[in-house]
Simulated assay, not measured.
Amino acid sequence: MASKETTQRRSARVRRQLKSVANGRPRLSVHRTSKNIYVQLIDDAKGQTLAAASTLEKDFKAGKKTGADTAAAAAIGKLIADRAIKAGVKDVVFDRGAYIYHGRVKALAEAAREGGLNF
């Protein structure tokens, strides 16, 4: 298991790379735990969150058994895409954080693309 320092270093490396290619686009940041997944659309220039979604929301929890599978991640991906488009954002950069692009993170990204986001 990676140490906290290693995880933070990897996350910072990914974010530094994203900053160089962002060109003013907001960042779609993903955080996952063993039981839930969270996603935020962040405008780094203004330092504010434009939209957010997670498996802890009441509307989401009502219909799902768990927030820890790829189906839940895909549902959150579609939800964040809808909220981003309502906020007037179509082009984003995907910040996977310290997580590899696989499993729940990949499912969320693909669902967000299907929902209308470009990255």
Results as ranks from 00 to 15, higher is better:
M1Y: 06
K4F: 12
E5N: 12
T6F: 08
T6C: 00
T6R: 14
T6M: 12
T7M: 15
Q8F: 06
R9E: 15
R13K: 15
R13F: 07
R15C: 08
R15N: 11
L18V: 10
K19P: 05
V21N: 06
N23W: 05
S29K: 03
V30M: 10
V30W: 01
R32D: 06
T33R: 08
S34W: 07
S34L: 14
K35G: 03
N36R: 10
Y38H: 13
V39I: 13
Q40K: 02
Q40I: 08
D43N: 13
D43H: 02
Q48T: 13
Q48Y: 03
K58I: 02
K58S: 15
A62H: 09
K65S: 12
K65H: 08
K65W: 00
T66A: 13
A68C: 03
T70P: 00
A73G: 06
A74N: 04
A75F: 05
I76W: 03
I76G: 03
G77D: 06
G77Y: 05
K78R: 14
L79D: 12
I80Q: 02
A81E: 04
A81I: 01
A81Q: 02
R83F: 01
I85V: 10
K86C: 00
K86S: 04
K86R: 10
K86H: 00
A87F: 03
G88L: 00
V89C: 09
V89Q: 00
D91L: 01
D91G: 03
G97R: 08
Y99L: 14
I100R: 14
H102L: 12
G103S: 10
G103F: 05
R104L: 01
V105G: 08
K106R: 13
A107N: 07
A107W: 07
L108R: 11
L108Y: 06
L108Q: 10
L108M: 10
A111D: 05
A112C: 06
G116E: 03
F119H: 10
F119W: 15
